[in-house]
Design a protein around this nucleic acid. Structure first.
Length: 293
DNA sequence: CGATTTTGACCTGCGC
DNA sequence: GCGCAGGTCAAAATCG
């Protein structure tokens, strides 16, 4: 969060010229003092902001990664895989991983991934907002899933559904879908593994559906109608990509982060496939609109 | 009739 | 070793 602490100090330590009026010198000193005071205030605000951000991160972690303190033994064991957010969420953000091992996709940090220091199956967590009255556990994400089990877990009154990818028989990807304890309108889908095939034709991913309010041509509405993502559940990684340096160039750190994020996204076949679907859907939309006119 | 869903039983791993 | 809880299997039911 250092990026929010903009260095506003002005270089006012100018040696007064011999011809400078005493009033101007006095004014200069006054401005310097005021600048110093403002700087301190700003630093104080930044510290408070960081403290609050950390608190929020910790709360998010507790709510979604550790829903209850009385977690099952099995869940504790699983934290090595899914709990990677905890390992990095507490730090000040500004971290984009280069290892696509684990991620949680949310509205605020969509597709920004965090590093993981252990080798484990690729695990994603996706949150989907649904109708409050909707009790189904189906999340349309562009793949075809076959449900193979359902279980009521201890820490959540709503059942958990287990899915396998049925598009390719050899596809190892599994998906667990369960309603959030805190907000029953949110479906928490946990993906394990990587698809060894492309995205299916005629289906839409969550990402693409975020960009289109209307269903594109050929899109079959899902059994449940989840509205696009949604809510932040984990500490937000904030990338300050807007602010520029005094000389008008993005800092090297920012450029590095942008590069890393782009690399992470383009490496993910799910993202690229979803992006392609979204773009084609948009093009079809526009062409059909033009046809109407 | 094949694909998918449901659901109870069974398996497995972990903590005590 | 036992009990608990999550995960998986597989037969029956359902759907298109």
């Amino acid at each position: 969060m250092e990026s929010t602490c903009v260095d506003t100090s002005l270089n006012l330590n100018i040696v007064p010229s011999l011809h400078m009026d005493e009033v101007l010198v006095e004014e200069l000193h006054r401005l310097s003092c005021e600048n110093k005071r403002l700087n301190e205030t700003l630093n104080h605000m930044c510290e408070n902001y960081q403290a609050m951000q950390n608190q929020l991160s910790q709360l998010m972690n507790k709510n979604f990664e550790h829903p209850t303190t009385q977690q099952s033994r099995k869940r504790k064991a699983d934290q090595g895989e899914i709990g990677c957010i905890n390992k990095f969420g507490g730090i000040r953000g500004n971290v984009v991983n280069t290892v696509d091992q684990c991620s949680t996709i949310t509205e605020e940090e969509s597709l920004i991934k965090r590093p993981m220091d252990i080798i484990s199956p690729k695990v994603y967590k996706v949150l989907v907002k649904t109708e409050a009255t909707n009790n189904s556990l189906y999340v349309m994400d562009g793949y075809q899933w076959r449900k193979y089990g359902q279980k009521v877990t201890r820490d959540n009154p709503s059942p958990r559904a287990y899915f396998r990818c049925s598009y390719a028989p050899s596809c190892p990807v599994k998906k667990k879908v369960q309603k959030s304890v805190e907000d029953p309108t949110i479906l928490v889908a946990t993906y394990e593994g990587e698809h060894n095939h492309g995205l299916q034709k005629g289906e839409m991913s969550l990402v693409s559906r975020q960009s289109d309010q209307e269903s594109p041509v050929g899109f079959v509405p899902p059994i449940s109608s989840p509205t696009p993502i949604i809510q932040s559940t984990s500490p937000t990684v904030t990338l300050d990509l807007v602010e520029e340096n005094i000389n008008g160039q993005k800092s090297s750190i920012q450029q590095f982060l942008v590069q890393q994020m782009a690399t992470s996204l383009t490496r993910d076949p799910n993202f690229t496939a979803a992006l392609a679907t979204a773009i084609s859907g948009r093009i079809l939309d526009q062409s059909s609109n033009k046809a109407k006119w």
